[in-house]
Design a protein around this nucleic acid. Structure first.
Lengths: 193, 193
DNA sequence: TTGACAGGTGAACGAATGTTCACTATACTT
DNA sequence: AAGTATAGTGAACATTCGTTCACCTGTCAA
């Protein structure tokens, strides 16, 4: 069977996995592939696995393909860039697993403005925000000031709280009334181009 | 059974899921829980589900509670932080889907050093690197210079190629011999501790 | 002291699982 | 024209699955 077709089939299975958070059984693949016989599914999966688009674990259970393959260190001197051969040996990890501990309360926000530019957060960047987290000094928070939502550094001295921009041209804010903190930034992400 | 104990059990199952990318069967849970009877597992899972620490899907299959949940992409910061009611309306997306177009050739690397600090890339940041991509002027590339792998800006003027650091204290490099470009950065990620 | 109850064991059940076998239909060689 | 490879069907298989049943044990309140 054509390689591209097999790749598409693997994608269909991954789509099921994304939606249902588990791999489909062969019976369920009858529907996915519009087939009548489980044996047809069996052969099809065998081809897909042979091509390497999907894998099975030690118990023969089909595994979802991970989007991100390796997390690897780019050493300043020695490490070098990995060759395809090394890849297989490496541990794999999901970017989302790595960044997110509480998916339920984690959001992705787009930053506007340049008030955090000194912190490496530019206009257009995304930040992962976790709600329901009490900020500590130094944390980057999303706070409501004068009915506007802004990204600031959070600082606490005793009982007093400041919101500091990472850009001199913005003033430090000392909240007069109640301060509303929507969440704490746990990661920032910039996509190029 | 004690609520905290049940929560711990759910965590154990999630640990299995993280490691194996699938939920364990009841037989496998015998080992996880150190039990002899599948019925004990059955009752335990029932309690966990009742408490809401885990869920079952329509087909009665156990679902992982937290992983691979799509992220909710919210508007910009200035647009305000969403209320729970609004959340439902928003687009749902996977961070990895958003950032990555070619999973096969995309890697996650850790940056060392401060040569890109002006570009908002700090020591310890992660960058997503796509191999097999021809860099354009302005791209951030991972290049080999004097047997060292470094992160630099790529610049091309006619036939001449420069590697520029985003930090004045590093010199611009004009490659003498063949330049090895390992990949082009497509995103950078910083995790806050 | 009794009885309810939570939490475990071991055996059994039907249903679903992945796999194999025998066979058919179609397309492509030679 | 005959032969071969590919991809499908349908039925059967042993194994594993989640679930249910009957029973055992220790704890604790009445």
């Amino acid at each position: 069977m054509d390689t591209n077709t097999l790749r598409k089939y693997a994608t269909d299975i991954n789509a099921f996995y994304m939606k249902n958070r588990r791999m489909p059984s062969y019976s369920e693949m009858l529907d996915i592939f519009d087939l009548r016989s489980k044996n047809a599914v069996f052969k099809r999966i065998a081809s897909i696995v042979k091509k390497g688009f999907l894998e099975k674990d030690q118990k023969g259970k089909l595994l979802p393909k991970r989007l991100i393959k390796p997390l690897r260190l780019l050493g300043s001197v020695s490490a070098g860039f990995p060759s395809p051969a090394e890849e297989e040996l490496q541990d794999v990890m999901s970017l989302e697993d790595y960044l997110i501990t509480n998916p339920q309360s984690t959001y992705l926000l787009k930053v506007e403005g340049d008030s955090m530019i000194k912190a490496g957060i530019h206009h257009g960047d995304l930040i992962l925000v976790e709600k329901n987290r009490t900020p500590k000094t130094g944390d980057i928070v999303i706070a409501q000031v004068d009915n506007e939502w802004t990204v600031k550094y959070f600082e606490q001295k005793g009982k007093r709280v400041f919101l500091k921009a990472a850009n001199e041209k913005y003033p430090t804010i000392i909240p007069t009334q109640e301060l509303v903190i929507a969440g704490v930034a746990i990661a920032s992400i910039r996509k190029y181009k």
